[in-house]
Deep mutational scan, measured.
Amino acid sequence: RNRTTFTSYQLEELEKVFQKTHYPDVYAREQLAMRTDLTEARVQVWFQNRRAKWRK
């Protein structure tokens, strides 16, 4: 699989949710996936990576 390149809009939306919660539930991830036109799996992985970056 190729690396996903996120648009500025997608990143904005993802970051907005990340500010509210670092662990969005499956419903929140589904909503976000629909809004950003990404798969729920991509959203889930983005949050995993974002949490790792945040911990550093």
Rank of each mutant, 00 (worst) to 15 (best):
Y27I: 15
D25I: 00
V43G: 01
R35V: 07
R51P: 04
R29P: 00
L11P: 01
F18L: 03
W54L: 14
E40D: 14
S8G: 12
T7E: 12
E40G: 07
R35Y: 02
F18E: 01
M34I: 09
V17L: 14
A33L: 08
P24I: 01
L11H: 09
R42I: 15
Y9G: 08
A33D: 02
K20R: 10
E13Q: 08
A28Q: 10
Q31L: 09
E15P: 00
E15A: 01
K20N: 09
T39C: 11
V17S: 11
S8N: 09
W46D: 01
L32G: 00
S8A: 12
R1E: 14
Q10F: 00
K20C: 07
R55N: 14
Y9I: 15
W54G: 13
R50I: 01
K56F: 06
T36M: 04
Q48E: 13
L32Y: 01
T21R: 04
N2A: 06
T21W: 06
H22D: 04
L32N: 02
Q48T: 09
R50Y: 02
W54E: 15
P24S: 00
R35C: 08
R55V: 14
E15L: 02
R29A: 05
V26N: 14
R55D: 10
A52P: 01
V45L: 14
T21A: 08
P24N: 00
T5C: 10
S8W: 05
T5S: 14
E13F: 03
L11A: 10
L32R: 01
P24T: 01
T36D: 01
T21V: 08
A52S: 08
M34S: 12
Q48C: 11
V43W: 01
K56V: 09
L32E: 02
V26I: 11
R42K: 08
L32P: 00
H22E: 09
A52I: 15
K20Q: 14
L14S: 01
T39G: 05
R55W: 07
R42G: 13
K20W: 07
Q31F: 04
F47C: 02
L14Q: 00
T5Q: 15
V26K: 05
E13T: 07
A52V: 11
N49R: 05
K53S: 12
A52K: 07
A33H: 03
